[in-house]
């Protein structure tokens, strides 16, 4: 469904993405792993149209290249991003945030159905419809951000570090919800620091380092991969852990 290739991105002279390619199949859950600054966030932003990659890049959704289209048109094509920091409308109520999620033209007819789905997934949002979004806890805000993205009837839902800053129990809850979303028709592309939990819900994974894809495999294979274990899963590689550098 999603075929991304030749994505390079410069911030000034800094090369954030270097000729990245990846793909996500229909209904698949894919995770991108890598250290801080590896370019994972930039990659999601490029796929969502929030930043424009260098010429030659392709973000093909069902064979149609979306690169170069205006940023607000990507969600209309079925690509929804839950950005790092959540990006909810803090001054607005929960209900208004969800309503805005259904703003894309193709999503409007399905607003009621999607809202029911979101409230079933995150019952706490239902209890807090009239609450101003920024007064909620971090976990609730993350649920709202995901709920808002689901309101747009996405075919591909991308999440940038959804568990960042959340308590372990909230993270568990969050990944349970993501797993349920992954079992629907929606494909997931997740960037995460929490390697164990994200590999637990993923079908496949990519490893990123310094703006490049350096490895890929099934979730099961990555879980048992020595390099992944050393870098992320607390394997016996004290230098890698203490410096935080991907081996």
């Amino acid at each position: 469904m999603l075929e991304v290739s030749a994505i390079s991105l410069h911030y000034g002279k800094h090369l954030a993405l270097d000729n990245v390619a990846l793909s996500v199949a229909d209904k698949e859950t894919v995770v991108v792993l890598g250290a801080n600054g590896a370019g994972k966030s930039s990659l999601l932003k490029a796929i969502a149209g929030m930043v424009r990659p260098n010429p030659g890049a392709r973000v093909n959704l069902d064979g149609v290249n979306l690169v170069g289209r205006p940023d607000h048109s990507f969600v209309e094509q079925g690509i929804a991003l839950v950005p790092e920091g959540r990006g909810i409308f803090g001054d607005l109520t929960v209900a208004e945030n969800l309503e805005l999620g259904a703003y894309p033209r193709h999503a409007r007819p399905h607003e009621a159905r999607q809202r029911a789905l979101v409230l079933d997934l995150f019952p706490r949002l239902g209890e807090r419809q009239q609450q101003i979004a920024r007064t909620m806890s971090g976990g609730e805000q993350q649920m709202l951000a995901i709920g808002r993205a689901l309101m747009s009837c996405p075919r591909l839902l991308m999440l940038d570090e959804p568990s960042l800053g959340l308590a372990p129990i909230v993270t568990t809850e969050l990944f349970a919800a993501l797993q349920r979303i992954g079992q629907t028709d929606i494909a997931l592309l997740v960037v995460e620091q929490n390697v164990k939990a994200s590999l637990g819900i993923a079908d496949r994974g990519y490893l990123m380092e310094a703006g490049r894809i350096v490895g890929t495999g099934s979730a099961a294979a990555l879980r048992s991969d020595a390099a992944v274990q050393q870098a992320f899963l607390g394997g016996a590689a004290p230098t890698a852990i203490s410096t935080g550098v991907f081996p």
Binding site: M50, A80, I88, F89, D91, E96, G101, P104
Partner: peptide, 15 residues
């Protein structure tokens, strides 16, 4: 109001 509150996020919902 959404654009006033958070213009950076507005394109995410297609605005």
């Amino acid at each position: 109001r959404a654009v006033a509150a958070n213009p950076a996020s507005a394109p995410l919902v297609g605005v």
